[in-house]
């Protein structure tokens, strides 16, 4: 099953794209495993995604760092917000 991965703000620039579609292996079920898997060949992206200030959003719900997930449709990495 395909999962959309979305990058916003400065993470979009670091990733070099706004989104990507992946087939997540079942072993990739936590934030840290996801970041290791997504950025295995990209230390700059790994460091950027791994920041405490970056929130993880699974199917449009922000989840805690230790949350587990299985077969989400959409995962988004959200750097600090700035509106207004």
């Amino acid at each position: 099953m395909t999962t959309r991965i979305l990058f916003f703000g400065q993470l979009r620039e670091t990733a070099g794209r706004a989104e990507t579609a992946v087939d997540l292996p079942p072993s990739v079920a936590t934030r840290s495993a996801l970041i290791d898997w997504l950025a295995k060949d990209d230390p700059a992206l790994h460091a950027a995604l791994n920041q405490d200030s970056v929130r993880l959003c699974i199917d449009k719900k922000v989840v805690l760092a230790e949350a587990t997930f299985s077969a989400p449709n959409e995962i988004a990495f959200l750097p600090p917000f700035s509106g207004g």
Partner: peptide, 22 residues
């Protein structure tokens, strides 16, 4: 809206661009 609404804001100047954080 300034710090808890999901927006990302980039300022563009002659010196380049930078992302604004709260």
């Amino acid at each position: 809206l300034k710090s808890e609404a999901p927006f990302w804001k980039q300022e563009v100047s002659d010196a380049g661009s930078r992302w604004i954080e709260p």
